[in-house]
Amino acid sequence: MFGSPLAWIILALAQLVFAWFYLANLESFLQVQPQLIRIAHPPGATEAIAAPLFSIGAVVLLMITPLLTSRLIAEERRNHTLPFLISAPVSMTEIVLGKFLGLMVFLSAIIALIVALAVSLLAGGRLDFGLLLSNIAGLWLLSACFVALGLYISCLSTQPAIAGAAALCILFALWIMDNAESGENGITRSLSPFAHFENFNRGMIDTFDLAYFALFIFFFLALSVRWLKLYR
């Protein structure tokens, strides 16, 4: 992956978006900072700059991940290279996990870019590391959900473009499910991974959210393994 120009272009473009957003947030934070001091418990730099950065990260990953997951199985099928993997002495679970983890390494690099930006705030103040860690964990789990879903959709089509578009639509629908409902705990909302990410974004690590993410990821990885087995 890191041997291809695609990876570096995506990293560069993602960094451009993050940096832009980071600077804009930093500027507005500096503007309101004098007034914030008067409040009893003013939001710190982590809350005001880093956390929104992670929310933007979630949206950027929502758009990037389908692009990357679309190729995982669909392209192997289109190029007739799937027998190369299936004939090898590796199990279907290993193939799926390999694809999943391989892409997660790359997405971790994108997340590391955001973390680096957030940590750079240390140059001018203190950081709430608890909040930062919960954001990192949340975004990582959220992107793992994207990959698991995208991987399964990539199994279903021989055309990477179709797999990519379908995955993007579904992720987008899940995102809207989170935003559309005004109530805090509606059913549609609790089905959306974005709603569960929001708790992490606020610095709240809930076992319910953890369980949701674990289940979501496991469900789609298991479906992918099943698909590969039935493909024979």
Partner: peptide
């Protein structure tokens, strides 16, 4: 897996990257 380790296979369309 053990059985597959004993096989070398060239499909009709070579599986090349």
């Amino acid at each position: 897996l053990k059985a597959k380790a004993c096989i070398g296979y060239l499909p009709e369309i070579p599986p090349l990257y």
